[in-house]
Amino acid sequence: MLRTGGSRLVAPGLRRLLGPSGREGAAPGLSAAGVRAYHERVVDHYNNPRNVGSFDKDDPNVGTGLVGAPACGDVMKLQIRVDEGTGKIVDACFKTFGCGSAIASSSVATEWVKGKQMEEVVTIKNTEIAKHLSLPPVKLHCSMLAEDAIKAAVKDYEAKKAKVGDSPAEKVAEA
């Protein structure tokens, strides 16, 4: 999927966006026939995804974001582990079943959220992820998915904390 997609979808102009890196020529998948491939960062994250895995979703310090894009039937799970005292995200992981862009977007997202405050990560925009990976327009929804997954994970964590805050009262009520 990754390669066939890339050959058709990446507009020539997009590759120019990555000017600063200055490494365009080294992009793998650029065949002799001049077939355009995904940006090397997508390929890198696809081949060596960072932070793949799962945390216990019932752990009170873990927030889970589970989102999907019906266009390709993708599923993306992004989890954060939060330090209760500081509200800092100490660890993050993801599991994505989808195309190369979706995998790369969620991989980047986990890297970006680590070590940051929750209120900081909810401001991460899909356009930043898309720009970082030079995603073609048809793949922008993959970066959108990653943005939504971060937000959903933070929301889940906050909902959990709110629940934990309530539960002692419930216990009293039950007793």
Partner: peptide
Amino acid sequence: EEKTINDQELLMEMMEIR
């Protein structure tokens, strides 16, 4: 179809199946 969906039941099921 490009809009993110949040149907947790479906997504959880799909995660397990995949």
